[in-house]
Amino acid sequence: MTAQQTDALIDALSAAASPVKRLASPLARAVAALAGLATVGLIAILLLPNDNPLAMRGAGGEMQAGLELAAALLAGVLAVVAAFHVAIPGRSRGWLAVPLPALALWLGFSGLGCWRDLARNGPSGWELGHSMDCFAFIIAASLVLGFPLAWRLSRAAPIDPLPVAVLGGLGIAALSAFFLQFFHPFAVTFLDLAVHVIAIGVVIFLASLLRRPMLRPA
């Protein structure tokens, strides 16, 4: 390749200049995406059968359930916001770390809940419980939420799709785990928590694997 070919390429590209729709700011696009995901989640909570599990868990004195819920929501929201930022060339790589404190808080509160459950119920705190249902819920909900999110992220044609896929995967997995709490009328055991974490890992892995067809990088 030569500099003359570069000049010819510039001529060809400028001749092909057509108006393009400028993307809105990453934050605005993230808010729009989150509003869409919240609507889907809200409809699911209202339509799918549940016995107000939050009240059932709260009645058991497990107030950390509210903190778990808030931390999961925060981790999901921050991961989605970060994904929209890193999809744009030149944005700070610091966005990769933004959801981590909320993620740590979420896992910390969940672990604390498991510990209290173990102290209260003894060895039954190690049982698997309904973990496989939770696993299936997180994977299925992530798929439902993931496709529209990937479509929105793909509009930036991210030049480096891996961090975008990892953050997007973490975001939808955390939001799915948040929605799971509305159908989860029992405290989690350590094994339940481990299964939740594995499910999140599987979602991130799948998102990374599918990053090219889903995000259509430039």
């Binding site: 390429l9 590209l13 400028r22 700011s25 060339p89 030149g90 044609a157 030049i159 430039a218």
Partner: peptide, 24 residues
């Protein structure tokens, strides 16, 4: 240059162009 053409819609006017180009 080809990538710039493909993603030129992602540039936000008012922000520095250099980091955007450097990342590409």
């Amino acid at each position: 240059l080809l990538t710039v053409h493909r993603v030129r819609h992602t540039y936000e006017h008012g922000r520095a162009v250099e980091p955007w180009l450097a990342a590409i």
